[in-house]
Amino acid sequence: MEPDLLRAFVQHYRGHGVREFLFAFHFTAHAPKQRREELLATCEELVGPPVLISQGPWHETVHSELRDHLRIRAGEGWHIIADIDEFHDYPAPPEELIAAAEAVNSPVVGGVMLDRVAADGSISGWHLQDGLDASFPLGGFLTYTLLDANPCKIVMARSSVRLALGSHRSPDHDPVNQPLVPVNHFKWRDGIQSDLARRVSEHGSGAWRENSPAIRTEAATLLAHVEEHGGRVDIADPRLKFRPARLGSLPENWHEDSTAIADDIRQFFENSPLPEVY
């Protein structure tokens, strides 16, 4: 993760009224020392030192362990929950979304990932001065359609709510908010292919523990897709529904598409024997 993405992340959420940030960073043995030092220095400059720094293998449970540590540190109340590459695009101020959820006794606010890619589908770099919108102007459903993964996210939750792996769902509560919050997912940037290849290798060897082979399968699927299409995501594939996207406005057909995806995922878990951890 590059320091510029952290800068953009803090700027984005401050624009939505967030004033307190709690960060945790995990570094594997592959993380370059210089990049790690730059990232920690940027965090200190922007919001102060991170709450937690951990090191070691990227076991599948590490993400949830770090998240839960931060939630305990945050204390009682509502929490906004986002990975560094996830930019929530709230259709109303967060406090209004929370008030609306509380009015119907719902302890969660939900969203769906909108995967953002470059205009030509290339896995490209970007510059802070250009901005994420200009660098990745298309949004679609890569995670859901191509990777056959869960793109739903719990974007806000009361402190008492349990969350599954990756904050993709709560075992106890389904979001009822409409529209669902677009979670602009800026994952498909320069460097992601080497990261995914490492996931396949390390999880496959058992060096990084996993609960299921899903992570390896998703990573291998994306790598194969990009290789098949000359180093690019196939933005012309109608199944992926790529369309112009910009922070601050709902994408075309967002309500219909996101609701259909969330309903499909909900039905899957209602009929699935998977443990609550998912």
Rank of each mutant, 00 (worst) to 15 (best):
V200S: 03
H16M: 05
P94W: 03
R189K: 13
K153Q: 10
L247I: 09
I261Q: 01
V183T: 09
L274Q: 14
A29N: 08
Q267P: 02
L147E: 07
D257A: 11
E95M: 05
A157I: 06
V51G: 11
L180D: 04
M1W: 09
L52A: 14
D85H: 10
N105Y: 09
R198P: 01
F242V: 09
S201N: 06
G206T: 02
G204D: 08
L6V: 15
S159Q: 10
V108H: 03
E227W: 00
A99T: 06
P49R: 15
P179N: 06
S159F: 01
P238E: 14
T259D: 09
S135Q: 09
V117N: 04
C43K: 14
F268C: 08
G111M: 05
I154P: 02
H30S: 13
V181L: 03
P57N: 09
P213D: 12
A31D: 11
I84A: 12
S212D: 14
D263A: 13
T259E: 11
H203G: 00
F25W: 13
I81A: 04
P273W: 15
Y278H: 10
A197Y: 02
H16D: 03
L39N: 10
V277M: 12
W254K: 02
P273D: 15
D174I: 11
D4R: 14
W208S: 00
E202M: 11
L128I: 15
E37P: 07
S249F: 04
Q193H: 03
V233S: 05
E252T: 13
L250D: 08
P179A: 04
D148H: 15
I84T: 11
P171W: 10
H63R: 06
A220P: 00
M156F: 01
A74S: 14
E202D: 05
F136R: 08
W254M: 00
P275S: 13
V51H: 13
A164K: 03
V47T: 15
S194C: 03
R35H: 12
G166C: 08
D174Y: 08
S122V: 03
V62F: 02
A74T: 05
H12Q: 05
T145C: 12
G121K: 01
A41F: 12
D263I: 06
D174C: 08
K33P: 13
S258W: 04
D237R: 13
T42H: 09
A220K: 11
D115K: 01
L223D: 00
A103I: 01
R198I: 03
G191A: 05
D264P: 02
C43I: 15
V112W: 09
Y13D: 08
W208V: 00
S64F: 02
H69E: 14
L222W: 00
F136Q: 07
F21H: 12
G248Y: 05
G111N: 05
E2Q: 13
V161F: 12
Q11W: 10
P273H: 14
I192D: 00
S272G: 15
H12E: 07
N177V: 01
R232F: 08
G75F: 08
L128A: 13
D83R: 04
L6S: 03
Q193R: 11
